[in-house]
């Protein structure tokens, strides 16, 4: 019997090590029945994208608390596009001022979640917006 399962990558781009939120999310996703790939801290966009491709994830959740989100999040989207993998959904979270949201949306980040967002709300968004992707060949 076919049994599709959503695969999610939780990744921390940039140099900050504030992984409290990322780890809580990774755990929450596991407890919600998803398969979660965690990258650890201090990842370059290149490392994140390569891992996402090898792991065939449907969603990448980026967490950044260093203020470099405007540089790093769009870079991940751009690299995915270059690899022909822009069907992978990218969302972001961390310390992100409201005024930056639009910039991130414009650069292909599908949703932004800041501290205080109930975890269930994130899950709801995923269930409504992320599907296992179409066949590749």
């Amino acid at each position: 019997m076919a049994n599709r399962k959503l695969r999610i990558m939780v990744a921390k781009p940039g140099l900050d090590g504030h992984d409290r939120g990322a780890r809580i999310l990774a755990r929450f996703f596991r407890d919600s029945g998803y398969e979660v790939i965690y990258t650890g801290c201090h990842q370059t966009p290149e490392q994140i994208v390569e891992a996402a491709l090898q792991e065939d994830v449907d969603l990448i959740g980026l967490s950044c608390l260093s203020g470099a989100h405007k540089e790093l999040f769009p870079k991940v989207v751009k690299l995915l596009k270059e690899k022909g993998a822009d069907d992978i959904v990218v969302i972001g979270g961390g310390i992100i001022p409201e005024q930056d949201f639009q910039y991130l949306y414009d650069h292909g980040i599908k949703a932004v979640f800041t501290p205080g967002t109930p975890l269930e709300e994130i899950k709801k968004w995923i269930d409504e917006n992320v599907k296992v992707r179409e066949e590749l060949v």
């Binding site: 940039g14 140099l15 900050d16 370059t44 260093s66 203020g67 470099a68 405007k70 540089e71 790093l72």
Partner: peptide
């Protein structure tokens, strides 16, 4: 450093 892109002077 390439690793510093976007982070310089930010935090």
């Amino acid at each position: 450093s390439p690793r510093s892109a976007g982070e310089v002077g930010k935090c």
